[in-house]
């Protein structure tokens, strides 16, 4: 059974939608500033993603691992390994599909692009009784999910896109 709350008839999404996501980040930052950008993503983490948060709350770390495997399998161009370690899930994003597609099309990527993964990841992890940490960015990164309060975030660990 799929852990993705919403499924499509085609196996992978259309990569040009990354253009829309990048443009939306730019619009939100310009319209609402950094604080508004964080508020928007936090509300999305609690709102749009609540079906995923519920799955994670009920299924714990194994469901987090399965969710991300299925998620990245549906993202075109993703090269990702998901490891289940002792009380921790490590998502090793070797090739971020969004950054790769945007760079391949010479798009002006918002420098804060990778921050959305941290804001959404931490919001959703907390809603599920877990913690989340992100390191890297600009095309490759490592996400970690663990029990509540275990993972802490280094403020400088998320790179800007350049």
């Amino acid at each position: 059974m799929s852990l993705l709350p919403y499924t499509d008839t085609k196996p992978k999404g259309a990569a040009d939608f990354y253009f829309g996501i990048n443009a939306t980040f730019r619009f939100m930052l310009r319209q609402f500033g950094e604080a508004g950008f964080i508020r928007w993503l936090t509300e999305m983490g609690h709102g749009y993603f609540e079906p995923v948060n519920r799955i994670w709350r009920e299924g714990g770390l194994p469901s987090v691992a399965q969710y991300w495997r299925e998620f990245f399998a549906a993202e075109p161009g993703a090269e990702v390994e998901v490891h289940e370690e002792e009380r921790q899930v490590v998502i090793d994003v070797k090739r971020c599909p969004a950054i790769a597609h945007l760079k391949a099309h010479q798009r002006d990527i918002v420098p804060e692009y990778c921050r959305h993964c941290l804001i959404l990841g931490q919001t959703r992890a907390e809603a599920a009784g877990l913690s989340m940490q992100l390191e890297g960015g600009n095309g490759s990164c490592i996400h970690r999910y663990g029990d509540a309060g275990v993972l802490t975030q280094d403020a400088d660990a998320v790179r800007e896109v350049s």
Binding site: G13, Y18, I21, M44
Partner: peptide
């Protein structure tokens, strides 16, 4: 991460948020 697979879902959510 916001993905492209369910783009239309979060796109619709954003419309309502805005």
């Amino acid at each position: 991460m916001l993905g492209c697979y369910d783009f239309c879902g979060h796109y619709d959510w954003i419309f309502n948020w805005l």
